[in-house]
Write a protein that binds this DNA or RNA. Structure first.
Lengths: 190, 190
DNA sequence: CTTGTCTATGCAACGAGTTGCATAGAAGGA
DNA sequence: TCCTTCTATGCAACTCGTTGCATAGACAAG
């Protein structure tokens, strides 16, 4: 039930509606825990029923009303408890890796375009992270004082940056390997 | 349905029973696509029903009989088709990152032990990968000839190694950040 | 002699996650 | 005027994945 905890963290950082949470999950916290609006609305309902969060109807002009959620005391308690529980180190799920191994039983060259497409997606994400870092953490208005929330957001973002850089290097290695196995000018390897 | 495809790849590399596949998913291919025996048995049933794989009862002495599966022609076809379809670049799911951001609303120092535990798990996995690489890809009996299956398994393993190295570096950064936020000797940051 | 581990397979129930669809008002462009 | 986009919420159906439990023979340790 990590989505529940991700929502608690996000609502502690700033209260918001289901829709707003879905937007945040498309950026920021969602880089490390993706979720669709369906999931979010469903879980918000359950969490409100369990008393973890409070809802407040907010009338708006020029747009539909919204339900703004904020963390209640039991929600803070639940998060704190979760933080003190150990979790299992993640097992990665890398569909592309399965494809690469599968390419041995098909045409390796046919995968090159697909890998290049992934490379581009990761390059874009890296550029996006770096822009966010410049904007939020190294700008002139970046406070010098030790702010736990900021520091922790920054270290998580550094993790995202390191991940994308590593992935780009690896995908270059993959492309080089695929090209070696299926040289464009010579015949295929026996 | 990537599990289906991971199973096809694994069975093409070597036919085997559900139990044997579950073992392989605990190592090798499972490093990039984890699965429990329950999932595997269920999907094998479905795939046999769909004609993607063939089953063969194998009597054994001193242990229970097993059903050995191998890939049928339609299975090869299905894999090939999947390889030619584009897939979405993965979105990572990193529960630890959620915890780290959550630590801003709790005691950051309390997370240090948890992060160190994860660091150790990743260090172990890296050592395991490196041992596998030495054994299978750089030993004296490693063939020099260009073998697509070997090369592709190796490049995927290199990806795993790069991932673990990156993760170790990042976790060191996380630990340093947490310690900075909660120095063991001085008072807590305001 | 009992307990635990390994091979081998499976059911049942539940929870998590995805996909398609629906509603509804306002704004902006073709 | 119509079409699309944005905000905002939700239902229904489905697939995927996890957890607990069960069976069953062989073997090893205590």
């Amino acid at each position: 039930m990590a989505l529940e905890h991700a929502i608690l963290v996000s609502l502690l950082e700033k209260p918001g509606s289901g829709y707003e949470l879905a937007r945040r999950f498309d950026r920021s916290i969602g880089y490390f825990w993706a979720a669709t609006h369906q999931q979010i609305y469903r879980v918000l309902k359950r969490m409100e029923g369990d008393g973890l969060i409070d809802a407040r109807e907010v009338a708006q002009q020029d747009r539909p009303d919204k339900r703004e959620y904020s963390v209640a005391a039991p929600g803070r308690e639940a998060l704190s408890q979760w933080l003190h529980e150990p979790i299992e180190p993640e097992s990665v799920r890398h569909e592309l890796a399965v494809k690469i191994r599968g390419a041995a039983f098909d045409d390796p060259a046919a995968l090159i375009h697909e890998v290049e497409r992934h490379r581009k997606a990761h390059a874009d994400r890296l550029a996006h992270y770096l822009a966010g870092e410049r904007r939020d953490f190294t700008g002139p208005e970046a406070p010098r004082a030790l702010d736990a929330g900021r520091e922790l957001q920054h270290v998580v973002l550094r993790g995202g940056i390191a991940y994308e850089r590593m992935t780009l290097d690896w995908l270059d290695d993959v492309i080089a390997t695929l090209e070696r196995l299926a040289p464009p000018h010579a015949g295929a390897a026996r």
